[in-house]
């Protein structure tokens, strides 16, 4: 089951730099929410709040609440490994492990203590099918993941994220390094995956945000300028800054 995600008055500082300024937003289950905005606006920083990836950066200070299904993920005692199992992430550049295709998917299961061979095999197949990659790799599961094309590697990374059955998928520009055909496959995949997952995606590609998302949030200088349905944002945004950005007049 997917969960409601909400943030309330979130501020994030990198040392003295105020990177996120009072962000409040609520994202519904089984939807795709796109975060757009110019480089440095805070959208990737915001995305990384949900699996506490920002914790890895020195001198980060976070205030406000980030709730997933009503629980603040920054509360003391939260199991970060468990959180990251629930909140999967796909990065801009495909980053398969230097292992076989099969092991790339099985790895997360093994780390989580799963030892049953048949269970792992089933889950590998199911994850690859979910990521629309099974037909292309079913006969070469023992081959190195590096033998796959960039687009296939990215779908492998998505399959790897899905194998541990998260409820939320974070995607940080997942198609920006891919050709149009691979991009199209990833977008189709996002469309399919939202039936079972809640997806948050950072993208610089306006058309991609328009095509894949249900809701869009526009960030600028650490502020959430506008958040609404993608249809409204791309047909009649309320804020002139949003309009200038999506129409390419931002200067």
């Amino acid at each position: 089951m997917s969960l409601i995600i909400e943030t309330k008055d979130v501020n994030l500082y990198y040392g003295d730099f105020h990177a996120l300024k009072g962000i409040s937003m609520e994202m519904q289950p089984n939807t795709v929410t796109a975060f757009i905005g110019p480089s440095g606006c805070g959208k990737s920083t915001y995305l990384r709040l949900f699996n506490r990836m920002n914790d890895l950066i020195d001198a980060v200070k976070i205030t406000g609440t980030i709730n997933i299904d009503g629980k603040n993920v920054y509360e003391k005692g939260v199991d970060i490994v468990e959180l990251r199992r629930k909140v999967g992430m796909v990065f801009q550049k495909p980053n398969p492990f230097p292992k076989t295709i099969f092991e790339n998917i099985a790895y997360g299961l093994r780390v989580n203590g799963v030892g049953d061979k048949h269970f792992i095999e089933d889950r590998v197949e199911r994850s690859l099918k979910q990521a629309a990659l099974w037909e292309e790799v079913k006969d070469k599961l023992k081959k190195s993941a590096f033998e796959l094309s960039g687009g296939q590697q990215q779908r492998l990374c998505i399959a790897r994220a899905l194998a541990i059955e998260p409820t939320i998928l974070l995607m940080d520009e997942p198609a920006s390094a891919l050709d149009p055909i691979s991009t199209s496959k990833i977008e189709e995949l996002i469309h399919e995956l939202k039936k079972n997952y809640t997806i948050l995606i950072v993208t610089h590609n306006m058309q991609q945000a328009a095509r894949v998302s249900d809701a869009t949030a526009f960030f600028y200088l650490g502020n959430l300028v506008e958040f609404g349905t993608t249809k409204d944002i791309f047909t009649h945004p309320n804020d002139i800054k949003t309009q200038n950005y999506i129409t390419g007049r931002f200067g």
């Binding site: 306006m206 791309f234 009649h236 945004p237």
Partner: peptide, 9 residues
């Protein structure tokens, strides 16, 4: 040109 928002309208 992929017009959006005011340009699309």
């Amino acid at each position: 040109l992929n017009p959006v928002a005011v340009d699309l309208r």
